[in-house]
């Protein structure tokens, strides 16, 4: 293993240091580790190129000389190899380090760590005292997040098993467009190839693995695609008026547009999008909340309450 990696390091150094393209013959002659018949050297070199490319190292092919026999040459451009984020201050490095450390123990832990090591190798000291004490934390319930990110960045399709509303396991294939978290859950959205429409999925409702298609650049991501203005969210919202008991229903008060005191109760107004889930959250607050309007919301909650009363009456 170390002979192979030694050869790869030497190849990288030689291709980086050269100012002109190196031909295969020059490489075989001068770089240590290429041995055996011409054919086996050739095979070794092809694999080595693939391996370096899999590490994200760009190897340029060029330098065809029209006078001599046109043999291809290879080099690595230092500007494509080396990290360059423009001018960075010590507090920039500190901020990026805090950003990387947010992944501690979570999905992208090792990826963020290797980014951190690179940042610490630039030679600029991180000035952690220049920024306030921060402890941002990334929290991901499903490590398959890594695969979604990879698929979006390479524009590859993904396939996975999804728990539908009625708990059926469905096979879904999508072109993933975006990934975002909200209120403690991660969502991803994209073009559902079966439904031929944009769909949003919650990451923790995926069963098992998310597999990423081999082909890349299979689709284009629509300009300005916004995950949270899709589907239900796109259909505008309604304003509800509620009476809530003093010091109660904090979760609803947080969302209030207006609060008007009236003795033992306060009257609040707030937006809601999906009536069904809004009713669920109103009912959680039991007798601390009374719906004043709109009428259809009031009728709906009265209906559900009657059903609950009947369902539990004869037990």
């Amino acid at each position: 293993m170390s002979r192979k990696s030694e050869r790869l390091v030497n190849l990288t150094i030689a291709l980086l240091a050269t100012r002109r393209y190196l031909t295969k013959n020059e490489i075989f002659r001068s770089i240590e580790g290429y041995e055996g018949s011409d054919e086996s050297k050739e095979r070794m070199f092809e694999r080595d190129k693939d391996d370096l490319r899999s590490l994200g190292i760009e190897i340029e092919v060029g330098g065809f000389d029209p006078i001599f026999n046109d043999e291809a040459g290879y080099r690595i451009k230092p500007e494509s190899y080396a990290l360059d984020l423009g001018e960075l201050s010590s507090s920039d490095i500190a901020l990026l380090s805090v950003a990387a450390r947010a992944w501690n123990g979570q999905a992208f832990n090792s990826v963020a760590h290797s980014a951190l090591v690179k940042l610490q190798s630039i030679g600029i000291n991180s000035d952690i005292d220049s920024i306030p004490m921060l402890a941002p934390r990334m929290v991901v319930a499903n490590d398959e997040l890594v695969n979604v990110v990879q698929a979006i960045s390479t524009k590859s399709p993904i396939t996975f098993t999804y728990r539908s509303q009625d708990l059926q396991n469905q096979k879904r294939s999508i072109y993933p467009y975006a990934l975002a978290s909200r209120e403690g859950h991660w969502y991803f959205a994209g073009l559902d190839l079966g439904k031929e429409a944009i769909r949003t999925f919650r990451l923790d409702r995926v069963e098992g693995e998310i597999s990423v298609g081999k082909k890349s650049a299979e689709f284009e991501i629509p300009e300005g695609f916004d995950l949270f203005s899709q589907g239900e969210d796109a259909i505008g919202s309604t304003i509800a008026t509620l009476d809530v008991r003093k010091d109660k229903a904090l979760a609803l008060r947080k969302r209030a547009l207006s609060i008007c005191e009236k003795g033992e109760w306060d009257q609040i107004t707030l937006h809601y999008v999906d009536e069904t889930s809004f009713l669920d959250s109103l009912l959680w607050h039991l007798d601390d909340v009374v719906v004043i309007g709109p009428t259809h919301l009031r009728d709906a909650i009265v209906n559900i309450l009657s059903t609950i009363a009947v369902n539990h009456a004869s037990r």
């Binding site: 494509s80 080396a82 963020a112 934390r137």
Partner: peptide
Amino acid sequence: TLKSPRTLSKEEIISLLLGLDLVRESSPNN
């Protein structure tokens, strides 16, 4: 020749971008 760190991979960049989102969120007034 190898003195400069390698360029960040796409995944490394995305991990930093997401981390920076949280940094932004944690200092809304600074």
